[in-house]
Structures are given as structure tokens and as C-alpha cells.
């Protein structure tokens, strides 16, 4: 099955810099793809090429089966795009701006009014529609950009950092909106806020230096962390040797990290292949008659995955920071 957006080996060079290197993506209907990467990884460049603004050096993009380079007008009709920074004509009122976009998109007559009103309502712009865009706050400007992108109810949405600069409530609203639209559309959202992926995305793609370095659901990505499902415990130092030996002997544990303290010590049992070892560890502790002060299963966060993957050259030593899940 092919998706509503099919990106095939897009590449772009700026001088000597390879900004995007053979990126391929396939986003079916109903999927919200989180497009992640550090600043300068090529997220925006990829999106600009995908929506036909930049010409790729090679590779192609199809929107609803229509090649955007060969038939840009037809492809763009199916596409809603929020450019980075949500640019808009500052001297226009929000309503006039939306009306302009609707007119260019060929939404005419009574449908235009309905489309504009619906976009205004969905993005919560009612209170500011008659103000000129340049006088609006960053959050409202972003929402005007979003309203412009969803105005014609496109099958494909490409949103470059839709929640950047919004306060937590506004972020929540925008995510709710994206989630609500998701079943009917294929949506690509770029972000560097990783919580967003857990909040709205059904799949995440991490790119670094113009290449895809990871692709999967949030859960799948977390599985890649060496300490995913690791069990951490804090015990009295008196039990240290005994516990360490017991854990090391345990089947399914590949390694035990230990930090010996004066009164209490920390141990972390690393599972083999990310399998759950919580029950086994608990059993083992009971058998050894050790009573931990603290015991938890680590899941890791996407931040850790991101950090580990995108700093891969120096990454081996930087994966130690953990957060408990």
C-alpha cells in the first residue's frame, strides 16, 4: 500500500553541505508522523522539498499519487503546509488573510465563508479575526498559519514546528486539533519537542545530518535504549556484594551496573534485548533475602533515544543519563 505522501530518496546539497541525503518516507492515511532531528539536521529542507517549494537535486515526492514536481498545481491542492515560523502578510487582518488563501485555493462562494469560519473555530481565532496579523502574539500568529493550512481540508498536512512558541495550553489545543484531524489525513509534523511525539504521533522518524537514523513508533524507538526495561534498585551497602552476585547470575540479565556508596548503593540490571526482567529480579531479591529501599523499571524517554542516536560519534559514553519511566 502506498501512502498519501510518498517521499522517494530526496536529496539536496547547498554548496558542499549535504543538507538532505536520500530521505524516503511513506505516510499512509491516519498516520501522524513526527519528524525529529537536531537543528540543522535537514528537517525544514526536507519539508520544503516535499511541498514543492524547493527543487530537490534528485528524488521525488508524491502527494495523493501526484508528483509535485511534474504537476505542482494538482498536487498542491491536496496539500496544506505550515512553513517554519508561520509567515503571513502582516498588514492584513486574520480574516482577510484566510479569505485570500481560500480565494487562491479556489474555494469560492458560500463554501469560502464556511471554510474560513470552520478554520477560525478549529484554531480558536475568534477573538482576533479582525486584528491585523502583525499585531498578534506569537501563539496567535502560529494559529493563523495553522488555520491557513487546514482551510481547504487537505488530505495531506505538512506542519513545520506547529507548536513552537505556544504556551502549554495552546500546545495542548493544537495537539488536540491534530489528533482530531488525524484519522482522515496523512500528517507530517516536525518538532524538536519530544513529548509531542508521545502526545500526537503514531510514528517517529529521527534524522541527523540529512539521513534517517531511526524510524518507528515511540515505543519501538525506546526499545533501542540499552537500559530499556532495566531494573534499578537502591539497597543497603551491606547487601551489595550478595545482591550483585545474585543479579549477575540471573538469566536474562546481561550486565549489572553498580555504584557502591557509604550507606546505600545503586545497582542496575540490564536486560537482554530489552525484555522485561522485573519479575525475575523481584524473585531473585526475595530468594536472596534482600530488601531494596527503592526499585523501579526504567523505560527511558525519547529524549534519551534522540540524544543517543544523534550524538552517535561520541554517543557511547553519553547514554548514561537516565530518567525513570
Amino acid at each position: 500500500m502506498t501512502g498519501l505522501i510518498v517521499i522517494d530518496r530526496l536529496s539536496k546539497r547547498f554548496g558542499n553541505l549535504v543538507a538532505v541525503d536520500e530521505i524516503s518516507l511513506d505516510v499512509p492515511k491516519g498516520e501522524v508522523l513526527g519528524f525529529l532531528g537536531p537543528n540543522g539536521a535537514g528537517k525544514s529542507t526536507t519539508m520544503k522539498m516535499a511541498c514543492g517549494f524547493l527543487a530537490p537535486d534528485h528524488g521525488s515526492t508524491q502527494i495523493c499519487g501526484i508528483d509535485i514536481a511534474k504537476n505542482p498545481r494538482a498536487a498542491k491542492r491536496h496539500l496544506g503546509y505550515l512553513p517554519e515560523g508561520a509567515p503571513a502578510y502582516g498588514e492584513m487582518t486574520a480574516r482577510a488573510f484566510l479569505s485570500f488563501v481560500a480565494e487562491v485555493r479556489g474555494v469560492g462562494g458560500s463554501a469560502r465563508r464556511t471554510a474560513i469560519d470552520s478554520a477560525i473555530e478549529r484554531t480558536g481565532l475568534q477573538s482576533v479575526v479582525d486584528q491585523s496579523v502583525e499585531t498578534l502574539s506569537k501563539g496567535f500568529k502560529r494559529r493563523v498559519g495553522l488555520a491557513q493550512a487546514i482551510l481547504h481540508d487537505p488530505d495531506v498536512l505538512i506542519l513545520d514546528e506547529p507548536t513552537d512558541g505556544l504556551d502549554p495550553n495552546q500546545k495542548h489545543e493544537v495537539r488536540k486539533l491534530i489528533k482530531k484531524m488525524a484519522p482522515e489525513k496523512a500528517i507530517v509534523v516536525s518538532t524538536h519537542i519530544l513529548e509531542e511525539v508521545d502526545a500526537v504521533c503514531t510514528r517517529a522518524v529521527i534524522i541527523d545530518k540529512g539521513r534517517i537514523v531511526a524510524d518507528g513508533t515511540s515505543r519501538e524507538l525506546k526499545l533501542k535504549l540499552p537500559y530499556h526495561n532495566a531494573v534499578s534498585l537502591r539497597i543497603a551497602t551491606d547487601d551489595f556484594e550478595k545482591t550483585k552476585a545474585a543479579l549477575e547470575a540471573l538469566k536474562g540479565v546481561v550486565k549489572v551496573e553498580a555504584r557502591r556508596g557509604k550507606k546505600t548503593s545503586h545497582l542496575r540490571a540490564m536486560p537482554n534485548g530489552g525484555r522485561s526482567i522485573a519479575t525475575a529480579v523481584a524473585q531473585c531479591l526475595t530468594n536472596a533475602a534482600v530488601h531494596p529501599d527503592e526499585l523501579f523499571v526504567e523505560h527511558g524517554s525519547l529524549d534519551d533515544v534522540f540524544h543517543q542516536i544523534t550524538t552517535s560519534e561520541t554517543g557511547k559514553t553519553t547514554t548514561g543519563e537516565t530518567t525513570n519511566g
Binding site: 514543492g52 494538482a74 498542491k76 503546509y81 517554519e84 509567515p87 502582516g90 488563501v101 487562491v104 485555493r105
Partner: peptide, 14 residues
């Protein structure tokens, strides 16, 4: 300078 060219050129306009 305002970046609206990106908006304009991604509308169905040649």
C-alpha cells in the same frame, strides 16, 4: 524577507 514567499509558492500558484 518576511518568508511569505514560501507560503505563496506552496499555494496552487505558478
Amino acid at each position: 524577507s518576511s518568508g511569505t514567499i514560501e507560503l505563496l509558492m506552496t499555494l496552487p500558484v505558478s
